[in-house]
Design a protein around this nucleic acid. Structure first.
Lengths: 342, 342
DNA sequence: CAATCGCTTGGTAGCGCTGTCAATATCGGT
DNA sequence: ACCGATATTGACAGCGCTACCAAGCGATTG
């Protein structure tokens, strides 16, 4: 005999089955596919489970069935507000479902991402949500061969691994610049921090729009690898102004930078928008209530997370979404900070 | 025979043991307590595992050992920046350790918290991190009988369930008011949103400080159950000003409200700090770089998360912290928005 | 030299659940 | 009344790992 024998009070599936007067297998089916039971047994098992306060042992289930009900989520940052919204969407979508989330932070490193991916896949997740479309070649190969729904979030692009939901950062940035140009601005600066792949594509969109307008000038661009912050927005804006004092507008790759730039303008008594137009990116809540209100590009982060999780669930339940690639779009929110000068 | 027989390529502990020329049990010990092996076997198992790319099956481990290496984390909100910092601390502390995190969102409901708690405990977590000291009586009873390290975070108080790390919201608010009083303010308003237990205690601290100074007036208090936002800060400030136009300062229960109040002041051409002093709470990054810079009460959120996770791990490894209750304190950051009028 | 001790190693028997397949019950159609 | 088809149910074995106990072994001791 190997170990201490059965703890008396413990409630296993067997106990529920016994009380309900059915076989353990039937009780098991009740929890996984109740429709397969006759109405009578279904009711008996249900009340027995409730009476005993039965909670399934997920480890045993995972071991026996060779799969889990865990959806792995790989995001590059826990601090960034953008991902907080996405996560909230994911958690909301999974709330009340049988699935749970395993979250991991790649810290903007695709090698770290690959490591975490291997770790996740070893535990046979039910599904996977990964950020962006820039994975290592190995990561991609691994994900292509694995048999579970995978959603790439935050942006759309060609050749999804499986499914994809996001928007075009290139188009979004281009639209922001188009707006600034339409308001009569000519010397439009670019402020970028962190410079992850999605921010790079916003820079590409900026470059394309400016080149089309024959207004491109590399001197207008200030970027850094440092993580973003409001303080950094002020610093970068000061740098830009030092390099190119004749700018009439600035496009910031996110709202923190935009807010920092606004504060820096106030410190320097540069009137916004009269002397300087500002546009941010993401449209965080505060943009609409600053003074002046700040223009931004609205992105649908909560919906992105929510839909991504729903796409995974639907696939798992056999109702695979008709279109594997969803473009959630964006909208340029035109506010006081980029209003046309009178 | 019950099911398809052994998948050929699958690497189990048995395979590693075979290659290393030891029994499975010895291989198993290598992963859990390498020091118990002789140096020779340890090296052999290690190289065998690496050669085969072995990854332990956590479900099997959990089932056989009757425990998991998952630390449950219950927080009230995913959106709130405050918890993002705490979470980052927790994830950082657990990074590279054997433990992983299971996160759940109570949405500021202690009933929801109790439900999630039962769910977690059914899976025998290695440890638990819960927010605050206001649990339901049932939750408390359950946690007191369960045999795993538990850390209550965000605040300190009497009678911890097990361990506790945080600071006194009462004292922190009182110190903020003391600062405002020291700067010569007399009619100090209070702006509160969400009004969760910790915010309530900040209100208590405010009331105590104002009463001590014989300046308390309920008309100075504006609160709402609505979740916080910058926009709400502006709205509440407008309400306060409508009720009590003669205020000379305002204490906001968080930085979002403070920023909203600042913007509202700008819109109304109320000079900060000349006509209106503002103090926030938490000291988020942007407070130091706004124009004017905003005073706030700095709290050590990242350290709180990090230490909480470390306290759990240390207890699990038999090195229980000497003091179960850790007060991380706070500091009043005095900036331009509450500078003494010249 | 037998008795004792500490360290390392292995054998056995499950942990609680579910995949597979066979057995049985039920039903409509001829 | 018989047949095959469909809906329900159950028996069995085993998922991959570890708790428990016991045994092997060299060193130490009186």
């Amino acid at each position: 005999m190997a170990r201490k024998h059965i703890t008396p009070g413990k409630i296993r599936l067997t106990e529920v089955a016994k009380l309900a007067g059915v076989s353990p297998i039937t009780a098991s089916r009740f929890f996984r596919n109740p429709d397969a039971l006759s109405a009578g047994k279904r009711a008996r098992v249900e009340s027995a489970a409730k009476e005993l306060g039965y909670v399934p042992n997920l480890a045993a289930r995972a071991l026996a069935s060779q799969r889990t009900e865990v959806i792995g989520v790989l995001i590059p940052s826990l601090t960034n507000n953008v991902f907080a919204d996405v996560l909230r969407g994911i958690y909301d979508a999974l709330d009340g479902s049988r699935y749970s989330i395993q979250l991991a932070n790649t810290r903007y490193s695709i090698l770290q991402e690959e490591r975490l991916l291997r770790l996740f896949l070893a535990q046979k997740p039910a599904g996977l949500i990964v950020t962006g479309i820039n994975q290592t070649a190995d990561s991609r190969r691994i994900m292509e061969t694995v048999d579970c729904p995978i959603v790439q979030i935050m942006e759309v692009g060609p050749s999804p691994i499986d499914m994809m939901i996001g928007f075009s950062h290139f188009d979004a940035a281009k639209a922001a610049i188009a707006h600034l140009l339409a308001q009569g601005n000519r010397r439009i600066g670019f402020l970028g921090a962190r410079m992850d792949p999605r921010v790079q594509r916003r820079l590409d969109g900026y470059r394309a729009a400016m080149t089309e307008a024959a207004l491109f000038d590399p001197q207008l661009i200030v970027t850094t690898a440092i993580p973003t912050s409001v303080t950094l927005g002020g610093t970068l804006f000061a740098d830009l102004l030092a390099k190119t004092p004749d700018i009439d507008a600035v496009f910031c790759v996110n709202d923190d930078l935009a807010l920092g730039a606004l504060f820096e303008c106030k410190r320097r008594h540069v009137a916004v928008p009269e002397q300087m137009a500002i546009v941010g990116f993401n449209d965080l809540e505060f943009m609409a209530s600053s003074e002046p209100t700040l223009s931004s590009v609205r992105t649908n982060r909560y919906e992105m997370g929510r839909n991504a999780a729903m796409m995974v669930i639907e696939t798992l339940e056999g109702r695979r979404p008709t279109d594997p690639v969803v473009d959630l779009g964006f909208s340029v929110m035109e506010r006081q900070s980029s209003a046309r000068r009178s």
